[in-house]
């Protein structure tokens, strides 16, 4: 399976990439929503995108909206991974088309549980 990790923090990209690689994912990353769209435009379509909210150039909510408007990218599951933890923000993201929401700080177990709920946890990864 493929994942696209979108976060302006290099540290957070490394951490999320490490977790997903450990689950058997092939991972690419992008430092903001616009760079992530460039990856999709190349034709590299992931099963999962993890998306930070506050990023320069194009934020996570804008990215979700653009992806949702393109039927060719409909199969991609979008999981917000962000420090925006207010209920209203969660509702906004889900309304825009995100499938799941993980609040920073998180643990690898939290990511694993969300992926299991989404049916995106490779079978060889034990729960």
């Amino acid at each position: 399976m493929r994942a696209l990790v979108i976060d302006d923090s290099r540290a957070m990209r490394r951490i999320v990439t490490g977790i997903l690689t450990g689950f058997g994912y092939e991972v690419r990353d992008a430092e903001h929503g616009r760079a992530a769209l460039d990856v999709l435009d190349e034709g590299w379509l992931p099963d999962l995108a993890t998306i930070d909210w506050n990023m320069p150039v194009m934020d996570g909510l804008q990215f979700v909206s653009v992806v949702r408007a393109n039927p060719a990218w409909r199969a991609m599951t979008m999981m917000m991974v962000t420090s925006e933890s207010e209920h209203t923000q969660i509702v906004r993201a889900l309304a825009a088309g995100a499938h799941e929401y993980v609040i920073k700080p998180f643990t690898a177990d939290a990511i694993r549980d969300k992926l299991a709920l989404l049916g995106l946890l490779p079978q060889e990864v034990a729960l």
Partner: peptide, 10 residues
């Protein structure tokens, strides 16, 4: 700071 600040904001 982003993570602590985000949760303080909440």
């Amino acid at each position: 700071a982003n993570v602590v600040g985000g949760n303080v904001k909440a």
